[in-house]
Design a protein around this nucleic acid. Structure first.
Length: 164
DNA sequence: GCCAACGTTGGC
DNA sequence: GCCAACGTTGGC
């Protein structure tokens, strides 16, 4: 079982949109490093945190499930599409996507500010300077740590994420 | 294969 | 809206 963190701008597509539609193609990935990870490591049934970027505040807002292995991103073939890439040949697609399914929305966001303060996450690319990956793998320890804190916040019903 | 120009990401 | 960081492009 693999664990991931995937970023999206809530103005474009947020956790509430995913909850409403249930399943959504995660398309528009135009970064080779991310594509390779999706192609080589991402498996059906993997879990991913949904991260809101360019949000106020940015942070982790819920969980989704990877529905299939990577397959060609047809958006790249559509000249009308925002993510059109004329260099992607339908006979040899350059870009891939997966479908993701809504799993859970947290009551409270785990903010980037809080995530940055956690020693357990010091090695996560998310909190490293200059990181630009929109999809990144998490270790099982990192996943468990984040999930435990998301749950703890829910049972408390509060927004306080002070390091205890 | 170098590297300057340019585009994008994403926090602030 | 600004801008630091980084990836990509393309001339040479």
């Amino acid at each position: 079982m693999g664990y991931w963190l995937m970023k999206s701008e809530p103005d474009e597509f947020g956790i509430d949109d995913l909850e409403r539609v249930g399943v959504e193609p995660w398309d528009g990935i135009r970064n080779y490093q991310v594509r390779n990870m999706m192609r080589d490591q991402m498996k059906k049934g993997d879990l991913a945190f949904f991260y809101h970027s360019n949000a106020k505040p940015p942070g982790i807002v819920g969980i989704m499930r990877i529905e299939n292995e990577a397959y060609p991103d047809s958006c790249a073939f559509d000249p009308e599409d925002k993510h059109y890439d004329p260099k992607s040949d339908p006979d040899n697609p350059r870009w891939l996507r997966v479908d993701v399914a809504f799993e859970e929305k947290f009551d409270d966001i785990l903010t980037l500010d809080w995530l940055k303060q956690q020693p357990e996450l010091a090695d996560c690319p998310l909190v490293r300077r200059g990181n630009r990956l929109s999809v990144m793998p998490l270790t099982e320890d990192q996943w468990d740590f984040i999930l435990a804190n998301a749950k703890r916040g829910q049972t408390r019903g509060g927004t306080n994420r002070g390091s205890a």
